[in-house]
Design a protein around this nucleic acid. Structure first.
Length: 563
RNA sequence: UGGGGUGUCGCCAAGUUGGUAAGGCACAAGGUUUUGAUCCUUGCAUGCGGGGGUUCGAGUCCCUCCACCCCAGCCA
């Protein structure tokens, strides 16, 4: 792959804030961000937007970024996801300054909670979950103070200590902040900040049986790490007053600012962890790294490049408005990268046998074919030409109008990198299906166009006598509608049954001389990469189509059918 | 009269103190081409959710209306 330097983010409202902050000397001119995933699933394209933003902007402003696993809910989390996330972030091309877990702060968080209790700003509430809900009121009606809201500091301290000591059952008590049960902002109606959970934590083992909640943990973690700009999605907009409230009560270093931007919505895909997991559990796909998944692991296996993904994240921009990005933009990014960096090769995905009747059996010729049409530095390769070949079935017709630029019975076409051939006859099977095309080649047309004749076009091919058989997997979106989440129908009923298509064909032998991870453009077909899982087990080559060539041929076919 | 947000071309999105609507994707039309790819050229918002107002001048200021999104986890 060509090594390219990333462009800067176009100006956006967050970079504008950072510019202004540095100008005014806020945070002493520092910029420090963090990427805080919860280790309960795999990172996906939506996370890529946040990763690129956090790491990209920090770097542009001379700052750094921390990786922080937001692991305050041991019931849903697992160390395995941390490993996968580190790998995905590194693959995307980013390096974090410090790695932390929110659980690293459990002791500090506990001490801050004790301080809040002493200050009369937190209390132990013994209402049940259902009771708390009903006391909370509704969106339009204020809540009611919990009967435990006026417990004494001493009693709260004692109860909280016993909560930590494991004296109570799960759910018996919670620690709550004392803010305002009548607030229009539900988040300020005495939010819970600690709950009792007698479960082991993947990092702290059984050291704790009380675990802090997100709103309380996140702002303090940010402050402890001296984060300056804490970026999150717009779903947390009305949590900001709580974020600020907590920090205002405590004597913590730094004063991080939470800034919200809208999450990515990509057409034809879902990104909720619940749904992605369901797709796997219910066998719609083969795993987190299935090439059709919008996970970074899936896109990596599919062959997407880190550069293309970063470019995509930059091109979609950063705002607070709802968006629905078209797949075409993502595809444009990957094509642009691969157009320049992928060596060309030929592969026949849906083979049709061709025999060059005037090509002697022992004549086998070795042609020298450039690896890139406009980059001589990519060199050339040897491609064998023999009496029998394969071309794609869609590249031959018994008859066709002049718009069809491929092989037609009785007419000429050029074999890419080789000679001009003329179809003189066909052989059919008992069902009348064409199983072989007999052609004559013109020995005077290697590297030169014939005199006085106009050849229809150029088609790709592969020697039938010297090639490698391979499976080709082509993909369509996982869903049949652009907004699977917005439909009335369950999204699982909107799954595209043709999301993966497998073809048995042939590829030129030269690909075997390239690294396993080499991305190719199979001319006139698309960009492909070897699947890094299946090929090794079956012994046969398996190629995943990364993205097809931009194809005005689709529309061409339509016009051809019409006349 | 719950709170918080957002509305600029089909999609994404620039638009600092009001000065006369960037760019990308998509699309269309030409040109080049031994990939119907790439590349090159050109086109694509008298208009900035609607309606008022202020102003010499408003996407940018004021008023008002409309639409859409988020919030009632002891999830994050």
């Amino acid at each position: 792959m060509v090594d390219r330097e990333d462009a800067r983010y176009p100006s956006n409202f967050i970079s504008n804030i950072m510019t202004a902050d540095q100008a005014s000397g806020k945070h002493q001119g520092r910029v420090k961000t963090r990427f805080p995933p919860e280790p309960n699933g795999y990172l996906h394209i939506g996370h890529a937007k946040a990763i690129c933003l956090n790491f990209g902007l920090a770097s542009e402003f001379g700052g750094t970024t921390n990786l922080r696993f937001d692991d305050t809910n041991p019931e849903k989390e697992d160390e395995h996801f941390m490993t996968a996330m580190r790998r995905d972030i590194e693959w995307l091309g980013f390096r974090w300054e410090e790695e932390h877990n929110a659980s690293d702060y459990f002791e500090a968080l506990h001490d801050f909670a004790v301080q809040l209790i002493k200050d009369g700003k937190a209390y132990v509430c013994s209402l049940s979950a259902e009771e708390i809900r009903s006391y909370r009121g509704t969106l339009t009606e204020p809540g009611t103070d919990s009967p435990y809201r006026s417990r004494s500091v001493e009693e709260n301290l004692d109860l909280f200590a016993r909560m930590r000591a494991g004296e109570f059952e799960d759910g018996a008590h919670v620690l709550r902040l004392k803010i305002d049960m009548a607030s229009g902002n539900m988040n300020l109606r005495d939010p819970s900040i600690y709950r009792i959970r007698h479960v082991a934590h993947h990092q702290t083992g059984d050291a704790w049986c009380i675990y802090p909640l997100y709103d309380y943990t996140h702002c303090i973690s940010d402050a402890l790490e001296r984060i300056t700009h804490s970026l999150c999605d717009t779903g947390f907009e009305d949590h900001r007053p709580l974020y600020d409230w907590v920090l205002d009560q405590l004597d913590v270093p730094g004063n991080p600012q939470q800034i919200e931007f809208s999450r990515l919505n990509l057409q034809y895909t879902v990104t909720s962890k619940r749904k992605l997991k369901q797709l796997i559990d219910e066998k719609f796909v083969r795993g987190w790294d299935d090439p059709r998944m919008p996970t970074l692991a899936g896109m990596r296996r599919r062959g997407y490049t880190p550069y293309a993904l970063r470019d995509f994240c930059r091109r979609i921009g950063i705002t607070k408005s709802d968006n629905n990005v078209e797949l075409a933009l993502l595809e444009s990014c990957i094509r642009e990268d691969l157009e320049a960096s992928a060596p060309r090769a030929m592969a026949v995905i849906n083979p049709l046998k061709v025999t060059l009747v005037n090509f002697e059996k022992e004549q086998a010729e070795t042609l020298q074919v450039p690896n890139h049409p406009k980059d001589p530095d990519m060199g050339s390769r040897e491609v064998p030409l023999t009496r029998t070949l394969y071309i794609d079935q869609s590249d031959f017709r018994l008859e066709a109008n002049k718009k069809y630029k491929r092989l037609v019975l009785g007419q000429e076409v050029r074999l890419r990198g080789a000679y001009v051939i003329r179809a003189v006859d066909v052989r059919k099977d008992e069902h009348g299906n064409i199983k072989e095309v007999l052609c004559e080649y013109d020995p005077d047309t290697l590297g030169v166009n014939p005199e006085g004749r106009k050849v229809r076009g150029v088609i790709h091919w592969v020697s039938a006598e010297d090639c490698v058989s391979a499976e080709f997997r082509r993909f369509e979106p996982l869903f049949t509608v652009p907004f699977p989440d917005a439909e009335e129908t369950d999204y699982r009923d909107l799954i595209n049954p043709n999301s993966e298509q497998r073809w048995q064909g042939f590829v030129e032998r030269s690909v075997l001389q390239q690294p396993r991870a080499q991305r190719f453009q199979f001319e006139r077909e698309g960009y492909f990469i070897q699947d890094d899982v299946d090929a090794t087990t079956s012994g046969e080559l398996v190629f995943n189509e990364i993205v097809g060539l931009k194809d005005s041929a689709d529309k061409m076919r339509a016009t051809l059918e019409s006349d």
